[in-house]
Design a protein around this nucleic acid. Sequence first.
DNA 1: GTTAGGG
DNA 2: CCCTAAC
Length: 640
Amino acid sequence: METVVGIEDNDDGKLEDSVVDRSSSAALSSSPKKISNPVVYKLVRVEGDGRLVPATDDEVMEVEDFLEYENSEMRVVADTGQSLECISIERSSSGKLRLECSEEADLGKLNAKFQYIEQMLQKVKQEERLRLSSRSPVHSHVKIDSQCSADKFPVVNEKVRSETPYQEAPSIASSLNYSHSNQSGSIDQCSRPSEGVIESGSSASDVYSTSKHNFSMPEGEICLDKLSIKELHELFKVTFGRETTVKDKQWLKRRIAMSLTNSCDVSATTFTVKDNKITRKCEEECSGNASAAAVISVKNMAGEGCGIEDNQVASETRLKNLNVENELRDEDQQREERAAKRIRKPTKRYIEELSENESREHIPRSSSSNKNIGHGHVSPTAYVEPARSAFPEARMFITRFDSLGGSDVQIPCVSRVRRSRPRKNIKSLMKFLPTGVGEAAKLSNGSDADSEIQDKVSKPCSMPVKMHLLSTTESVKEKQCLVIGTTEPRQELRPKRIDPSSNTSEGDIVTVPTAKGGMRRKHHRAWTLVEVMKLVEGVSRCGPGRWSEIKRLSFSSYSYRTSVDLKDKWRNLLKASFAQTPADEGMNSRKHGTAPIPEPILVRVRELAEMNSQAPQNFSSSKLTASGPGSVHGDRLGYL
DNA sequence: GTTAGGG
DNA sequence: CCCTAAC
């Protein structure tokens, strides 16, 4: 069998540098002009006996402006074997991609395509089986024949001849050996036909060889999910005509699925790609067709950035850089990278998060440890730059490769700085500050000693400290959502709750889910009965709404109670007092954790609410007045 | 800076 | 308790 892949420049017959340059690394983006040359890919069909037959000239698929570059043009010749499949994709000036299939691209063709894929997969499986059984090395010979006629259809043909159905280790690496072939130069020059025999063959050629139809997978269904990386690579290769180094399964599956989906008008065909499954809707005639044909080449990834990469002239790479293995790799990588660049950069938060995970897991960031971290997106593919891995400490930011949106991206790892509330023991430090400590001790009566100290101290003397508190608190608010519970050791989050018996406790910092799915941290401190009474008293004295004043008068020593807190608490008290009365303690007794608010207090709250017209409408005022205790009457007279 | 009210 | 619009 033989595989013929042709690249041509149908413009003026010059294949030359346009192809060469294009496949050379990074040249693509920098020199759009060269890409303007149309290129024709000639694919092959697989005969029933496993032979591959080159496509003919008229089996041409035109892809216009396939790349994002305005003038680029690409033609793909596809032969499905039985009949011609012609798919034309063109992008209008508006950037919209139009895709159309020729009349001949009928169900039969698509079925053939499907079958081809099946065969390919089977082939791969077979290979793996054989490889596993560790047989004696069998090498296949790949014959590459490039010929280029300058006149009509200057085509470089790469004839790949595989003489054995499988190769020993059809890995990416081995297929890269491809590039060692001695005819590489001829391809570059294109005008000189050449031939080369390659040991160890390419996996691509293996793929093209057919084998009997014995599938483990259900007929008419290929589940990408079940494929190994290697299989996906093969499929990728067949699909896009080039190899990939990406080992991200998701990425591969996505690409392949998209390609298969978009290579033709699927809706009108027998294929459906759903959930990474390629399924064939039709049943009938095509099923037995052994002469499956291979035709996959075009795909439309418009609008997805990565599209360019794939749209890159498929097998150029192989045809061209046949001699430099590393270049090939580099280029491939660069393509992935370039594609990646079109994807949004990872957010700061994302980076931090990942870094966070890493440091937590104590994974040394060595060159080889590109393991999945956190979200399973890290691509093991990642080639860590030698310089980088050699001197990791020399860089402030160590980068790693990650796959974002299916493309490899380099992501800097930053070591995270402390981003949380300052340690609670900052207070102990503050105690040593010269001001106010003495009187604070004198003022405090037990429970509030701590806070009072803090209050006194922080007010007059410690501006810097205060500012620190503020700033950190603020940043915490914003960013901490995702790192809660992970960033900080518990001891910091839950500081000294050493003496639960005393109300000195600072209160817990609890995290609550926020509307946006994140978490926010709040400093919770339960209201004590004393505080409640003070509040009620304050309200009775100043009236509801004058929270600042109440705060000033009654809560001057409670630095942690803001006027807003008072207001909120009052609101709650109001609610509680009116809610519970009818049901008689219903709510109150239900809450075990918090001590129920004594009825007298609630009564007074109700009273105050009533006189300030804060009582709910439906509440009977008669009952209120009747039960109103006289004891507090004097206090509130002034407000009546 | 406070208040009021929603979350 | 947090956030914020409206004072």
